[in-house]
Design a protein around this nucleic acid. Structure first.
Lengths: 223, 223
DNA sequence: CATTCATTCAATAATTCTGTTGAATGTGAT
DNA sequence: ATCACATTCAACAGAATTATTGAATGAATG
């Protein structure tokens, strides 16, 4: 009764899936795809990778069934293969957070303002936004903002924040958000805003979680 | 505003955690540890690895914060670092199942009796066991059985099943269980029992899930 | 039908991972 | 102290992964 062959095969499959997530670039690609489908070129630019490298990572991800692809004219648009993939990524995040002392060191070491880390929950944001107490700031690139954003949110991509910081009023607290809990744009925006003397925190989640919670989404390039 | 350094660092951490799960032996080790703490030697034997190799995998797992260790006399006992790790593993399983066509091929190809795959849920097992309609069979090694099992379950380790198959009555359906949904002992037991003319299915989950659901656990080497 | 362009493939060198071997560490027992 | 033993460490060869380069597909456009 050789139990070893199929047992090993099953474990090998799990390991293969895990291995596929075992490269920073592939994690970043999935995080980007969580926003919506993207072409190879678009992904390469955003993740700062060469086209060929990006394509190869996408092949790897596709082989493991983590992303799917469809052709649209000249482009091949990739997207996340299903919610289970995001759940898996979230599991990775939780474990990395909980167990990896290194993680704390990195995150805290970079933004050494302790309370800049205190996130605002979705419900808190909703309450305070309704009461007009806060300014909601979407720091993602303009096209992602246009594709869907939190109603009422202003958009200043992180890259432009330094120049355009004057557009923001100083009276209300600013709550920045991005793609997800570990999309660092929000972290960096909060750091920059605080440095400039603003009161700022980040939203605990990002737009994908907002969408997943069934909350309203606005579209277009204006709040 | 060099956003790349800390962003990359965070992704690198996630990737590191994923990479740690990217080896079949380490997955198997975690699956074994899900049963309870084990010494290096015990793990090496069960996973059919050399002591040194096992130790190194354990170091890797510990470095990533997936397992923890404590000394007990001469032995060092390892255990899973927390529930989040099992959640992550479960996420891996779901994704591998859903997206990996390979997985189906392996599992179905090996046990080509289609309905042998139909699992019994925990609630169904409870109902039918209370009514005395089924025999519950724990096919894990005797020591794991002694450490904790479903109340009323008989224990015949898979290795002894062929010789001891006569101990089982033919009148009632047999429901076999093991460590978890992908612990293959249960699969193999069902296959063997059916081949011998028994009516048999497997429990959907294993003992860790039973325990996690807060259900009663019996101890000792008797039902 | 030829051209353009997004994507993929193939081949390479650099790096990283794995398993084995044998020695080293540290604990409990004699 | 010395011994036995569980575990870890160190060093090595073999295997796998990665980014880069340049060529090859394959669909759309004129």
């Amino acid at each position: 009764m050789s139990s070893t062959t199929p047992k090993r095969a099953v474990f090998a499959q799990f390991a293969q899936t895990a291995k596929t997530l075992g490269h920073p670039a592939r994690i970043e690609i999935i995080e980007l795809l969580a926003q919506g489908e993207r072409s190879v070129e678009a992904l390469a630019e955003r993740a700062d990778l060469s086209i060929a490298t990006t394509s190869q990572h996408l092949q790897t991800l596709k082989r493991a069934g983590l992303v799917s692809a469809r052709r649209d004219g000249k482009f091949i648009l990739y997207s996340v293969a299903g919610d289970a993939v995001m759940t898996l990524l979230s599991g990775l995040r939780v474990v990395s957070e909980q167990h990896n002392a290194e993680m704390d060191r990195i995150v805290r070491g970079y933004f050494n303002q302790r309370d800049a880390m205190e996130p605002v929950s979705r419900t808190e944001l909703l309450e305070r936004a309704r009461s007009g107490l806060v300014t909601v700031l979407d720091v993602r690139p303009a096209d992602e903002y246009a594709a869907g954003h939190i109603p009422g949110a202003n958009n200043i991509p992180l890259a432009e924040l330094e120049q355009r910081i004057g557009e923001l009023g100083r009276t209300r607290e600013i709550i920045a958000y991005c793609r997800g809990p570990y999309c660092v744009y929000a972290f960096e925006a909060v750091a920059a805003l605080r440095q400039a003397g603003y009161e700022a925190r980040r939203l605990e989640d990002g737009l994908p979680q907002w969408r997943a919670a069934g909350l309203e989404i606005a579209q277009g390039d204006r709040p």
